[in-house]
Design a protein around this nucleic acid. Structure first.
Length: 260
DNA sequence: AGGACGCCCTGTTCGC
DNA sequence: TGCGAACAGGGCGTCC
């Protein structure tokens, strides 16, 4: 579930808590989550250093150590960071723990172990290496129009991290709802007004979600997400929401506001 | 190229 | 009541 807004909230949390603190120890409970490194390798790079800055690209969070080293965190669909001190028991499903010299702990918590922990030279190097598309919040209208010349279903395109980084299943539904576009429309079939609307919806939806601290309860009243469940109603026309499969995921939409 | 599918993983929910 | 199946979904790999 962590998509761009959730990861941005997480980045701000990391900035507010762990910046400039020397890392004294690292512990990895789930080595399978490490990509391209080992518990020992992670320790070698992190120990004695401190996060000097943070960054985010799409759904990836970076803890920057210095010019040539950064920690890369991905949260899969259930993951978060928890910062605390002197807790008798670690949070359940703590997969990786950083202990700072000051005595505070930072826990990477991921119940479903679908996340990923890696090391990279820099955020830019990682993005390049992974072939990630531009971050959804910096995507220009021209870039989006270029992408949308494809035949792919629009929902699949929005979620394709190699094209646009940061949008997942939930927020793609919201973006399509706000732009009044059916999830299975072919991107290439959309007209200029629809493309413009979609591009604006990407920015509007993601910014609103960040402002709401990625909490569905605090989203604007005309958002679909709080209603995204069986029996949910369209916040605009009160129609019962429907689902359809796209990219192997369930897309929720309003059959009246988002005609095919 | 695009899409369908399976896999990873586990907490929750549903059906028998 | 209790158990197992199905489901949720981000990302990756495979196949058509």
């Amino acid at each position: 579930m962590p998509e761009l807004p959730d990861v941005e909230v997480c980045r701000r949390y990391l900035t507010a808590t762990a910046l400039h603190q020397r890392i004294a120890h690292t512990r990895v409970a789930a080595p399978a989550l490490l990509a391209g490194t080992t518990p020992q390798g992670l320790g070698r790079v992190l120990k004695g250093r401190a996060f000097t800055d943070t960054a985010r690209h799409g759904k990836y969070l970076f803890g920057i150590l210095d010019r040539d080293h950064c920690l890369v965190l991905h949260f899969g669909m259930t993951g978060e960071l928890q910062y605390f001190r002197h807790r008798t028991a670690l949070p359940a499903h703590t997969q990786c723990l950083l202990r700072f010299a000051g005595g505070f702990d930072l826990a990477y918590v991921a119940p479903r172990k679908l996340g990923r922990i890696a090391l990279a030279d820099s955020p830019a190097a990682f993005v390049q290496d992974q072939g990630l598309g531009p971050d959804a919040l910096t995507l220009t209208e021209a870039q989006f129009a270029e992408l949308a010349s494809r035949r792919a279903q629009i929902k699949c395109l929005l979620m394709d991290q190699r094209r646009i980084a940061g949008i997942g299943n939930l927020y793609s539904d919201e973006i399509l709802f706000q732009a009044r576009v059916h999830p299975r429309c072919r991107a290439a079939d959309l007209d200029a007004a629809q493309l413009r609307g979609l591009h604006r919806a990407i920015g509007h939806v993601l910014q609103a979600a960040i402002a709401a601290h990625a909490d569905a309860q605090h989203l604007p009243g005309d958002f679909l997400l709080p209603q995204r469940r069986p029996g949910g109603r369209c916040p605009r026309c009160d129609s019962t929401l429907q689902t359809v499969q796209a990219a192997g995921r369930s897309a929720w939409f309003c059959p009246r506001c988002q005609p095919r």
